[in-house]
């Protein structure tokens, strides 16, 4: 890993889980030049629950892809726990994603042929955690999320809410610096969506997890600690709720 920075533009990176600095993403294609992200800068404190909202095509998903290091920006920097993630090579980025980022996807993205337990411990398995440690850790999180009894079942046999809990458990198993949730309630009914959202809120407030959630639901966005509204690739509003 590269050396951790401590301060950028007067932001204390020791207290900051995520810092985005002058981030731009421009797509050049035969159809023309599209500026998906236009010189974005913001930071997220450790333990903060931040929502990124905006209309379709505003750039919120592109931003999440950049923060999750799934794509490289045209320019700018992203710091997670003080590490400039795009200064890393692809292999180091993969390791960084495994260690520092937990992903929660709208459609859960679980491996349905294998058990809930194997799904949850997968990031631990990838990081080289011993099977017994990975099992113990996965079971502990499943218990905390109230689905330990589903450990041996296959995700496909669970309800949508239960599957999203499994995905949340998977996101937490490596104790990441930030959890990135892309429309985590988008595939759930209202009640289940609220339950999942409450769970994320609890994780943030009670267990001091840093969560960045992309949503197009204004009510959910207002229920987080802070809402960043994106429009045309720029931050339109950054509101503490």
């Amino acid at each position: 890993m590269v050396e951790e920075s401590t301060k950028i533009d007067n932001i204390d990176l020791k207290e900051t889980a995520l810092a985005v600095k002058n981030l731009s993403k421009i797509y050049d294609s035969s159809a023309g030049r599209v500026v998906a992200l236009d010189n974005l800068s913001f930071s997220v404190k450790k333990g903060e629950f931040v929502s990124i909202a905006g209309p379709s095509g505003s750039g919120k998903s592109t931003l999440l892809n950049m923060v999750g290091a799934l794509d490289r920006p045209t320019s700018g920097h992203v710091y997670i726990n003080g590490i400039d993630i795009f200064a890393l090579n692809d292999s180091m980025i993969a390791t960084m994603r495994n260690n520092l980022i937990g992903f929660i996807f709208q459609s859960f993205n679980l491996i349905n042929r294998t058990t809930v337990l194997k799904n949850v411990k997968l990031p631990g398995t990838i990081s080289g955690m011993s099977p017994s440690d990975a099992n113990a850790r996965a079971m502990k999180i499943l218990e905390a999320l109230g689905i330990a009894d589903k450990a041996t079942q296959k995700p496909v046999n669970l309800s949508g809410g239960q599957q999203q809990r499994v995905a949340i458990a998977r996101a937490l198993v490596n104790n990441p610096a930030i959890v990135l949730a892309d429309e985590p309630t988008g595939n759930l009914d209202t009640k289940t969506g609220e339950d999942v959202f409450d769970m994320l809120k609890t994780l943030s407030h009670k267990f001091k997890r840093t969560i960045i959630m992309v949503t197009h639901n204004p009510e959910l966005a207002e229920s987080t600690d802070r809402s960043i509204l994106i429009r045309d690739g720029r931050i339109e509003k950054d509101v503490v709720n």
Partner: peptide, 16 residues
């Protein structure tokens, strides 16, 4: 393909 994408998103190396 989505499974591969998920595995890579959660940190699997190309070699894995």
């Amino acid at each position: 393909i989505r499974e591969i994408g998920t595995m890579k998103a959660i940190g699997a190396q190309n070699s894995s």
